[in-house]
Amino acid sequence: MNAIISAAELASESKGPNPPVLLDVRWQLTLATAAGQPPFDGRAAYEAGHIPGAVYVDLDTALAGPAGTGGRHPLPDLDVFGAAMRAAGVRADRPVVVYDGGQGWAAARAWWLLRWAGHPSVRVLDGGLAAWSGESATGTESVEPGDFVPRPDSIPALTADDAAVLAREGLLLDARAGERYRGEVEPIDRVGGHIPGAVSAPTTENVTPDGRFLPAAQLTERFDALGTSAVSRVGVYCGSGVSGAHEVLALAVAGIEAELYVGSWSEWSADESRPVATGPNP
C-alpha cells in the first residue's frame, strides 16, 4: 500500500464500505514564542475546524514519552499509546489516515509509530489539512472505541549504537537543516554537529512549497544521489525523531525501506561520551 493518500482519494474512501479512521495530529515545533504570543495549540486548532470524523491526537503526550535521557520525543509508554489509539477509534481491521496542518512531520511520526506498533494499514494525507477541500467540522467527535493493541518492534527502530554502526557500514541520513548538521547553529540541543559518518539530507527538500511530496521518481533520484542504491541498509535521524519520520516516509514513497533512530540528535548529543562531527557532507 502506498504510504500517502491524496485528498481526492481520501474523500472517495471515506464514502466506501470500510472508511479509514482519521487522526488529526496537528503540532508545531516551537523554538521560541514571540512576546505576547501563546504557543501553538493543536487541540484548539482541531476544534476550530477539522476533517469530519477525525479525532485529535496530541503528539507530545500520546506519540512520545516524557523528554529525558532518551531524547525530547522518545518512544511512548505502550499502555498510554495503545489507550490513545483505541480512544481515537483505531482498529486492527480498519485503515488509518493521519494528517496534520500541512508540514507533514507530526503525521509522519504517527504513521511511523503505528507501523512500529504493528498496524497493517496506515497512510499520511499528502499536503495535510491544507490539501483538503471538502467539508469541515468543528468541536470534537464521538467515535466508537477501537481494539488496537500495539505489537512493538514490528518494524526496526535504531538505538544510538545502531546508528553509529549504520553511519559506518550503511547509510545514515540526517534530516535536519543543513546548518544544524554542519554545526553552524544549534537552537535546541547541547552541541551542534552530526553523528560521524552521517550524510546531510534535509527533509524539507523532499516536498514542494505546498508541503506535498515530490513525485516518487524525483525522490528516488534524490536518494540515489545520496547513496541509497549503494547500501543494503538505510537509517534516518533528526533532532528528536519527528522530522526524521518524515524522511522515512519520503523514502517509503520512493520505494526505499529505512529505519528511524527515534532518540536522534537530542539523545546522541546529550551523552558527552559520544563523538560529534561538524562541517559539510563527507
Score class of each variant (00 low, 15 high):
residue 139 G to H: 03
residue 141 E to C: 10
residue 103 Q to F: 14
residue 112 W to C: 08
residue 77 D to R: 07
residue 144 E to S: 15
residue 136 S to E: 10
residue 62 A to E: 10
residue 162 D to S: 04
residue 57 V to N: 07
residue 128 G to P: 05
residue 57 V to D: 04
residue 153 D to Q: 13
residue 139 G to E: 06
residue 67 A to N: 10
residue 131 A to K: 03
residue 80 V to P: 05
residue 88 A to R: 02
residue 68 G to A: 07
residue 101 G to V: 03
residue 96 V to G: 07
residue 111 W to G: 01
residue 55 V to P: 04
residue 108 A to P: 08
residue 76 P to W: 12
residue 39 P to R: 12
residue 106 A to R: 01
residue 115 R to W: 02
residue 105 W to A: 15
residue 156 P to I: 05
residue 44 A to P: 00
residue 97 V to T: 06
residue 145 P to I: 10
residue 62 A to L: 06
residue 42 G to F: 03
residue 158 L to V: 10
residue 158 L to M: 13
residue 46 Y to F: 15
residue 95 P to T: 02
residue 142 S to V: 14
residue 135 E to Q: 15
residue 114 L to N: 09
residue 78 L to S: 12
residue 76 P to R: 13
residue 73 H to A: 09
residue 135 E to C: 08
residue 168 R to I: 03
residue 81 F to A: 14
residue 164 A to D: 04
residue 106 A to M: 03
residue 68 G to D: 03
residue 134 G to L: 01
residue 115 R to I: 05
residue 139 G to Q: 01
residue 149 V to L: 14
residue 170 G to Q: 06
residue 160 A to Q: 07
residue 140 T to S: 15
residue 43 R to A: 09
residue 102 G to L: 11
residue 76 P to M: 12
residue 169 E to Y: 08
residue 71 G to E: 05
residue 132 W to E: 05
residue 157 A to R: 14
residue 166 L to S: 09
residue 123 R to V: 07
residue 74 P to F: 10
residue 166 L to I: 12
residue 78 L to I: 15
residue 147 D to R: 11
residue 154 S to N: 04
residue 135 E to I: 04
residue 131 A to P: 02
residue 50 H to I: 01
residue 115 R to L: 09
residue 77 D to N: 15
residue 155 I to A: 04
residue 126 D to F: 01
residue 142 S to W: 09
residue 143 V to D: 02
residue 109 R to H: 10
residue 87 A to L: 13
residue 167 A to H: 06
residue 91 R to L: 14
residue 131 A to D: 03
residue 100 D to C: 05
residue 49 G to S: 05
residue 39 P to D: 12
residue 125 L to N: 02
residue 132 W to G: 02
residue 81 F to N: 06
residue 129 L to C: 08
residue 91 R to Y: 12
residue 101 G to F: 01
residue 72 R to D: 06
residue 81 F to C: 09
residue 119 H to T: 11
residue 112 W to A: 11
residue 74 P to K: 08
residue 63 L to C: 09
residue 129 L to E: 11
residue 113 L to K: 03
residue 170 G to Y: 08
residue 43 R to G: 04
residue 150 P to E: 14
residue 46 Y to K: 07
